[in-house]
Simulated assay, not measured.
Amino acid sequence: MGEKDRRLVPPVSPMTARTVDATPRAPGLAYEAKWDGYRALLFARRDAPHLQSRRGTDLGPGFPDILRAAAGLGEEAVFDGELVVIEDGAVDFGALQSRAQRTGRRAEAAAAAHPAHFIAFDLLELGAESAGVTMNRPYRERRALLEEVFTRHDLQPPWALCPMTTDPDRAGEWLDPAWGRVGIEGMVVKGLGQPYRPGERGWRKLRARATAEAVVGAVTGPVTAPDVLLLGRHDDEGELRMVAQSAPVTTALRRELGRLLTPAGDDHPWTGARFRSGWGTRDILAHRCVTLDHVVEFEADVAFEAGRWRHPVQARRLRPEVPPEDVPRFPAGPAE
């Protein structure tokens, strides 16, 4: 925060949300579409525009198109929102990641080939009003100011305004996996009277969920008491492709799987393979291959990229009635 709390200075810790299992329903709530992109704060400053990640990283070098839009807004402001790249009518998370890794001429070339959008959903500072005053306004007033900015400047891409409703039934449509295919992965719920509190986990979020099946290809921990499952599907050439990593399984499922799983021989397709512990991480999992005899049903959100679920899935139960050859082929997604 700048002198006398008048001007925000990056990095700023954004307000965040805790996960809930059902749509909150009460008077005085607002529901925003939750996008599958990079959370970002955009500082619209004519001479020093800045794009900051949720954790404070400077994203500006990878997104010169967004910085130009911020510099050209015509008034100073700080926005909270989601950074996305849209290809063929859907969010392309892989293209977004690739852009974030480029700088200089390569970043400019990527911006021309894969334009980004900044989807604004909150306002932390506007014009001469001090940031402290703006953030202390209730959400309903900040949203009204945000909409006024879009109208006053007739903002066009790369700017976008996040959809919002006060109707929980309408917001519930965002939980349909069909929306997941275009990049909306659920909703964020805010109180209409809530101020913006940097770093506070004061909102609520609900991700769209869907069930799917895959073959257990490997595990972490002992085969007789597996901890995490590495799940696979065969592609059209018959190659087993990893599609998901589970969160640690329940005690009941661990015991059930431990009685059934069999260590695989050296002919297993994943023998010698290296799997990372999470999307975008460098840590390698120590896994044990098992024979491809068992299918599990899992629950996952709709963050799906290049045939694989990016976030850990929840293994729910064995599907002994489903033979491995009947599992959907790679790269079928959440609703296919």
Rank of each mutant, 00 (worst) to 15 (best):
M164S: 08
R310V: 04
G199T: 07
V149D: 01
D326H: 11
L96A: 14
V219H: 08
K205S: 14
E200R: 15
W35L: 15
P331T: 08
E147N: 07
A171H: 08
A218N: 02
L51C: 07
G72R: 09
R106I: 00
R308T: 11
G62D: 02
G186A: 13
V295Y: 12
E108F: 03
A40V: 09
T211Q: 14
L192T: 07
H268Q: 04
K205Y: 02
L229A: 06
R276G: 13
R233Y: 01
H234T: 10
R7P: 01
C289Y: 01
T291S: 04
P324I: 08
G2F: 01
V290W: 10
E76H: 14
M242H: 06
L83K: 14
A30Q: 10
K4I: 00
V219N: 12
G272A: 09
R317M: 03
V149H: 05
G193C: 00
P14L: 00
D283K: 11
A26C: 08
A71G: 09
P115M: 12
R181K: 10
V223L: 10
R317G: 02
P177T: 04
R316T: 05
G74C: 03
T151R: 15
V228T: 15
P331M: 02
A116M: 06
A112Y: 00
G28Q: 10
P312V: 01
V84T: 09
A107T: 09
V228Q: 14
T23G: 00
T211I: 00
A315F: 01
L29R: 14
G56H: 05
L8N: 09
E239D: 15
A90N: 13
G333V: 01
F79Y: 12
A178S: 15
R45I: 00
Q52I: 03
L175K: 03
W159C: 12
D235W: 04
H50N: 08
L126M: 11
G278M: 05
A22Q: 14
S277D: 12
P24G: 13
G62A: 05
D236E: 15
L285G: 05
E147P: 09
H234V: 08
T166C: 11
V296T: 12
L175D: 11
E147Q: 15
Q194W: 07
A69I: 01
T16I: 05
Q52Y: 06
E305W: 07
L253Q: 11
R319S: 08
R46A: 13
R276S: 09
L67I: 06
R6K: 12
L230K: 02
W35A: 02
A48Q: 09
P334K: 04
V296K: 14
P320S: 09
R152I: 06
R39M: 04
G307Y: 04
L175R: 02
G307F: 07
R329C: 06
A252V: 12
A247V: 02
V327D: 11
K34A: 01
T151K: 11
M187C: 00
A144Y: 04
P10S: 03
E75T: 14
V85S: 05
D88A: 15
G217T: 09
T211K: 07
R282W: 04
F330L: 04
V133K: 12
V216S: 03
Q245Y: 02
R259L: 09
V189Q: 06
E321I: 04
R276H: 14
A95Q: 10
H117D: 03
T57V: 05
A171L: 14
P168C: 06
A306P: 00
